Simulated scan of single mutants.
Amino acid sequence: MDAKGLRERKKHETRIALSWAAIRLTVERGFDNVRIEDIAAEAGVSTRTFSNYFGSKGEAIVARHHDRARAIAAALRERPDGEPIWEAVTQAALEGFPLGEPTGQAADRSWIEGLRLMVAEPALQGEFQKAGAAAEAEFATAVADRTGTDPARDIYPRLVAGVVGAALNVVTQQWLVAEPPPPLETLLRDVFGRLAAGLPEPR
């Protein structure tokens, strides 16, 4: 890897470290009890470095949401040609959704409770909405590339993207409220399996 590649990798790793630090501290302390200085210290960088990557702590927290969308969109582009769209979306979601969540924290009730409070935090709703809009744009472009359609003229890519975004939100919310939390793979397969079947009514 050349020097430019190493710099880009380092920048990517720093961005991830800052976002995870913001999430960890918010889950542990609550949104109002976390400062940008705390996040920078947790990630081992300066507050100036934080400002080079994010404009606010909310932006840092929600960054992983957008990263997840990019990962799923990238995985969708790599699925085999000719694979049915919902099968391809399901496999892409299975590959991109977990996005390196910290080992062991999925089973920790205090962690889940903290996540539940974090995603409901009023001060973060605007950031989540912006990230959701960006995610739908990522999905729509990937679907358009795969299906040979134009998202500016054909509603199909944007319709699929909107459904995928809603489905991923359902997966997240269901995982947070279920007792005990089911495996993410189970939820993802269930949700996208229902969509692939045309969302039939429950028996």
Rank of each mutant, 00 (worst) to 15 (best):
A106S: 12
A134K: 12
L188A: 05
Q105V: 13
R116Y: 14
T103R: 14
E127I: 03
T90R: 09
L99F: 12
R203H: 08
E13K: 02
E83W: 00
V119I: 15
E121V: 10
P122D: 09
F97W: 15
A63V: 03
R194Y: 06
Q105S: 14
E28G: 01
R77N: 09
T147L: 15
E83I: 08
P122T: 01
D154I: 02
E8H: 13
E185N: 04
G132N: 14
A21H: 02
T186W: 14
L94W: 02
E101C: 00
R29L: 09
P151I: 10
A142E: 06
E121C: 10
A75Y: 12
V119A: 06
G193C: 08
A133M: 11
D145N: 14
A107S: 15
G44F: 12
G165P: 05
W86S: 07
R9Q: 14
P157H: 10
I61V: 15
G5I: 04
K130S: 13
I72E: 07
S46G: 12
P102S: 12
H66G: 13
N52T: 09
L199H: 03
L18A: 11
N52R: 07
R68S: 01
A137L: 13
T186L: 12
A142M: 06
A40K: 12
P98C: 09
L188D: 00
L99Q: 09
R79L: 09
M118R: 07
A197Q: 11
A120F: 00
A106R: 11
L6K: 15
L168F: 03
L117N: 13
E8K: 14
A196N: 03
I61S: 01
S110L: 14
R9G: 08
F128I: 00
H65G: 02
M118A: 09
A75P: 07
E95Y: 04
R24T: 09
A120C: 03
S51R: 15
A17L: 06
E185H: 03
R77H: 12
A178W: 00
F192N: 00
V160N: 05
V27L: 07
A22F: 07
E136P: 01
W20A: 07
N169W: 01
E42V: 01
W86F: 10
R7L: 13
G126P: 04
E95D: 08
P182V: 11
R7G: 03
G114I: 03
L195F: 12
V45P: 03
P181I: 07
Y156E: 08
L184V: 06
V34E: 04
A69P: 10
A75T: 04
E179N: 13
T26G: 14
D108M: 11
G30V: 05
P202R: 11
L199V: 09
R15Y: 06
T172W: 01
Y156S: 11
L195W: 10
R153K: 13
I39S: 05
R35W: 02
K4S: 15
D108Y: 04
T49N: 05
G100W: 06
V45A: 04
H12P: 08
E136C: 10
L168I: 10
V45E: 04
G44Y: 06
R68Q: 09
E37D: 13
D81K: 13
D190P: 05
A166N: 03
E201N: 06
I39L: 08
